[in-house]
Design a protein around this nucleic acid. Structure first.
Lengths: 127, 127
DNA sequence: TACTTGTGCTAACCTATATATAACAAAAGA
DNA sequence: TCTTTTGTTATATATAGGTTAGCACAAGTA
């Protein structure tokens, strides 16, 4: 999986790493059971410090996206907690949608945008 | 408009201020033309520094939610740039929805959530 | 044995956040 | 006119977060 970091971005490197790996799972570039490069390998290939990668991996583990195993390295393993995931999404969407509402973006336009984004994700999202 | 700050939150105070004011506009607690308290008044009433409020106001001005006038103070004035607002929302939703997709939250469930959130906003969102 | 793995620790550097204090010109009100 | 309040700018300080560096260890691999 190709990972690219924008060093001029105002987003922290470890946050960018998390986002790219989550996008990789959603778009099925990487799938359950696949392994990510080790913290040292990824740090070397991207050109950042080992601890920055470790921070991203640790947070992804806490969020239930990967599991860290000394034998296998970082393995994609989704721990589905729909209650928590739903609550987290609601919290994140509340402000984003309010901003759009202030800017006269209609409910229908948001629905269109959701469909557009979901079409990017090839991963099967079960109801 | 009542503003409450959670000092134990990991969100910066000036970010919390922005969010609460944006939510206030979306829920029509404050409307176009209404004035916000001055930076010093709000700082005093909330118990924070003047510069923290000023930072929030300046960013809200740059984002096109308020206008700062030496005579009237901070006035709610929406500068609608739908192109930019749409792009910004798309960027913010991309990661949030990808997370949900990984956690098996379906497209339909997201649509429900969008409707649920939009029902909180009483402001008329024109298409 | 030699190597790599995740993990833990300390230290240093830079930036971001928040505070305090001060000062200024423009506008409002008395 | 005088005073007060306004947004704005500036400087300084303290704390927290992000990133890097180097070192070390136990567990697992080749």
């Amino acid at each position: 999986m190709l990972i690219e970091i924008d060093f001029s971005s105002d987003e922290a490197i470890y946050v960018q790493l998390q986002h790219q790996i989550i996008m990789g799972i959603a778009t099925e570039v990487i799938r359950e059971g696949d392994t990510l490069p080790s913290v040292r390998q990824l740090a070397d290939s991207v050109g950042i410090n080992m601890h920055t990668v470790n921070k991203a991996y640790t947070l992804l583990k806490q969020a239930g996206f990967i599991q860290l195993d000394r034998r296998k390295g970082a393995v994609i393993a989704i721990d589905v907690d729909k209650i928590q995931a739903h609550a987290e999404m609601k919290r994140e969407l509340r402000i984003a949608l309010a901003k759009g509402c202030c800017k006269n973006i209609s409910r229908a336009e948001v629905h269109e945008l959701v469909d557009e984004l979901f079409d990017e994700y090839t991963r099967e999202c079960r109801p």
